[in-house]
Design a protein around this nucleic acid. Structure first.
Length: 123
DNA sequence: AGTATGACGTTTT
DNA sequence: AAAAACGCCATAC
């Protein structure tokens, strides 16, 4: 696998998008694909991560599945990803579940749902 | 140009 | 709730 990625526009945009994910937040594969211009290319995103996340020094651990779950299998990166997420204050249960309502990154500056409940309590 | 391979996603069992 | 069945896509070779 490992070669000279970043050649196609898609790959470049995927890398850009992943770099933008803030600490303490997560994004889904499909979300990244959409930001790169093709909402249906989630698998392509996965491929890029798999092949070049190390060389690009990407925050790969902040990318998870659409249902808020770590996609890596046990013994194949699951534990490592879980640790790295926890280190940023992201709650991950034993099954690898993460609450997207709380931790999903919103590129447009939209606040997570949990903040809305705070807003309401102040009215 | 055609086939195989995933860190995927959605719908249906 | 969990898994299978499909569908979809970028890359590698």
């Amino acid at each position: 696998m490992r070669k000279d990625e970043k050649r196609t526009a898609f790959s470049r945009k995927v890398v850009e998008a992943i770099r933008k994910i803030p600490r303490g937040r997560v994004a889904t594969y499909g979300q990244i694909a959409a930001l790169a211009g093709n909402s249906r290319a989630a698998r392509g995103v996965a491929w890029i991560l798999h092949s070049s996340s190390d060389a690009e020094r990407l925050p790969w651990h902040r990318v998870i599945g659409s249902r808020g779950r770590i996609s890596l299998g046990r013994g194949r990166g699951f534990e490592k990803q879980r640790r790295r997420l926890a280190a940023e204050g992201i709650a991950v249960d034993r099954a690898g579940r993460i609450d997207l309502e709380v931790f999903q990154w919103e590129p447009r500056g939209k606040l997570p749902a949990v903040f809305k409940t705070f807003e309401r309590s102040f009215r």
